[in-house]
């Protein structure tokens, strides 16, 4: 019961700070728990996938109803990333279970990936309203566009996808990594949607949530089939994250994101270093 209470409180805190910092809950859940708890990395990743799914299930309906995203925008992208997310789930479990030091390799790779994510987050600028290029063939064919009311400027904005061919290749890679590490993929989806497909930042965040909603269940089945989704971890984590994200969303209306974002990134930097050290020590046989 102690572990369940710990996971619940841990996820509650992550749920609160995730919307405030703009760093996804899945990205915090897996590396932090791997770094600072003794739970097997496979079970954490299984829980992480379910947490990412639950977060997107909670948040997507409102974003869709407000017009910030729609099915036309995501389905062409999903078609590609579903395949790679599935492959990624298998690859991650294969490495950790088939090799003697597999789970240490996964921990090390998780640390390196987190360091890379932090690098991306600190070097890319988010643009609120990028200038869209002309529509390409894929965008025109599937009508990857939409319209929504943007209260911060008090008017309706129209958005449409640009550079879809390059974006599709990027999403294939993102799906693989997300499936492999059970991370969710907002950290990569949002920059691709905002800076490559030139979608306004809130449209990019909403579209990323819908992408995660539609391709996480596939990765979740891989983890479930291999027995890596433990109810003792997953249920308290989902409950904590759901309640936390409601509180966090309320706080975004009152608090400036800059300082919280920097603080969260600092904690993640420590988690990345801890995972790298843990992984290297495990591979070298030093425990």
């Amino acid at each position: 019961m102690e572990m369940e209470a710990f996971i619940f409180l841990f996820s509650l805190v992550i749920g609160i700070i995730a919307p405030l910092s703009g760093v996804g809950g899945g990205v915090m859940f897996v590396p932090l728990l791997t770094a600072f708890s003794g739970i097997n990395v496979d079970y954490i990743r299984g829980g992480g996938v379910m947490v990412a799914l639950a977060s997107s299930l909670t948040s997507s309906p409102t974003a869709i109803k407000r017009g910030f995203t729609n099915l036309r925008m995501v389905l062409p992208l999903i078609l590609i990333s579903n395949l790679t997310a599935f492959g990624g789930g298998y690859l991650g479990l294969y490495i950790s279970r088939e090799f003697p030091e597999g789970k240490h390799y996964i921990t090390l790779m998780l640390g390196l990936l987190l360091a890379f994510i932090l690098f991306i987050m600190s070097t890319t600028e988010r643009v609120e309203f990028p200038e869209p290029k002309g529509r390409d063939k894929i965008c025109s064919f599937f009508q990857m566009e939409g319209e929504c009311f943007e209260p911060s400027i008090g008017k309706d904005i129209r958005y449409s996808a640009s550079n879809t061919t390059i974006a599709l290749a990027m999403f294939a890679f993102v799906g693989l990594v997300a499936g492999m590490f059970g991370l969710g993929a907002g950290w990569a989806n949002v920059p691709v949607l905002n800076l490559v497909m030139l979608l306004p930042i809130r449209v990019a965040v909403a579209t990323s949530m819908l992408i995660i909603l539609l391709n996480t269940s596939i990765a979740a089945w891989v983890y479930m089939a291999k027995g890596a989704v433990l109810p003792e971890i997953t249920v308290p984590a989902i409950l904590g994250m759901t309640i936390g994200s409601k509180i966090g969303a309320e706080l975004t209306l009152r608090v400036s994101p800059r300082i919280i974002r920097s603080a969260v990134m600092f904690i993640l930097l420590i988690a990345a270093a801890t995972n790298i050290i843990k992984g290297v020590m495990g591979i070298a046989g030093i425990t």
């Binding site: 379910m50 799914l53 299930l57 269940s217 479930m224 989704v229 109810p231 997953t234």
Partner: peptide, 14 residues
């Protein structure tokens, strides 16, 4: 039973 309910959660997108 809990695992089955978690599985139901994954069916929501479909």
């Amino acid at each position: 039973v809990v695992t089955n309910v978690l599985l139901m959660l994954t069916f929501i997108p479909a």
